[in-house]
């Protein structure tokens, strides 16, 4: 599903002493089927943008256009009952993983918590069971071992996987991930993002992921979206962001291999521009092989 922001603005608590603009006149197109990484400092507007996409907030101005086989617009003004129904259907197809999702767990057993989403969507009992099974398998939690356990008896990492399974179980077609790797140690971070990327490929998702762990996420990203001070500072492919870094146009810190490449270019060791190296900079292994002369 392609998602397009058209002059979208959002203000919290308008008309009160606490009024705060979170997004200002944002326009961009998020391409369908890609893994999009969203970057930006706290307060830059990126979380607001995510919540608007999921319909948790309503634009103060402008509109959001969702395109699958048909087009649907989420507007700032009043919409018809039929339009709202269609929007609800779209939003139900979007999975949203909040930061520290383990804080949402509430059911008595792991299985009941994971099935909360599909149950709310009105999925049949049989389908719920198979969705839960698939979701648990995807996150690496054995059904036999974990289904009947209390989520609160598990470790932090396991609880997070239960929460992720809970989002997967609704079989989303679009995924929004808000800092999925927050608070994890290095090995767990890589395992988690690799798993999510595998799901992205297997299910043909359009994935929108906010993360400041640029090293772990660089390899999987197709497209970048950078928010700065309530606006969009950059949107583009890996190629384009490499150019932006080469020309020092953006503030965001590049992944370590790009930092290394920039230093080597500055020293004259590498004589090609950064933009020509997008293949070599896919991963540390690839770049090491390139430098090693293989």
């Amino acid at each position: 599903m392609q998602i397009q922001f058209e002059n979208v603005s959002y203000t919290y608590m308008p008309g009160t002493p606490f009024e705060e603009v979170a997004l200002e006149n944002v326009s961009c197109t998020i391409p369908s089927g890609m893994f999009v990484t969203v970057l930006g400092k706290t307060g830059s507007g990126k979380t607001t943008a995510l919540q608007l996409i999921k319909g948790l907030l309503k634009p103060s101005r402008g509109r959001i256009i969702y395109t699958t086989s048909t087009e649907h617009a989420y507007k700032c003004d009043k919409q018809s009952k039929q339009e709202k129904q269609q929007l609800n259907a779209i939003w139900s197809s979007i999975g949203y993983l909040f930061q520290y999702p383990e804080h949402q767990l509430f059911e008595e057993t792991v299985e009941r918590d994971i099935s909360y989403g599909p149950r709310n969507l009105g999925v049949t009992e049989g389908a719920i069971k198979s969705n839960v099974l698939e979701a648990m398998e995807a996150v690496g939690l054995s059904y036999e071992q974990f289904a009947e356990r209390s989520p609160f008896a598990l470790s932090g990492g396991q609880m997070r996987r239960v929460a992720i399974a809970g989002v997967l179980a609704s079989k989303p077609q679009t995924m929004i991930l808000d800092e999925p790797m927050a608070g994890l140690d290095p090995i767990s971070k890589t395992k988690l993002i690799d798993m999510l990327y595998q799901q992205h490929l297997a299910n043909n998702w359009t994935t929108i992921c906010v993360s400041h762990h640029i090293d772990e996420i660089w390899q999987h990203t197709d497209h970048f979206l950078i928010f700065n001070n309530k606006r969009i500072e950059f949107i583009g492919s890996k190629q384009q962001i490499l150019q932006a870094w080469q020309q020092r146009q953006i503030d965001i810190e590049p992944p370590s291999i790009v930092k290394l490449a920039l230093l080597l270019i500055d020293k004259g060791i590498i004589k090609r521009p950064l933009t020509e190296l997008s293949n070599e900079l896919q991963s540390s292994e690839a770049f090491a092989r390139y430098l090693g002369g293989v």
Binding site: I257, L260, S284, E285, A288, R289, L291, G292, G293, V294
Partner: peptide
């Protein structure tokens, strides 16, 4: 990275 580089060194 250095280790990967050394491993890759032809």
């Amino acid at each position: 990275f250095y280790k990967l580089f050394l491993d890759a060194k032809a």
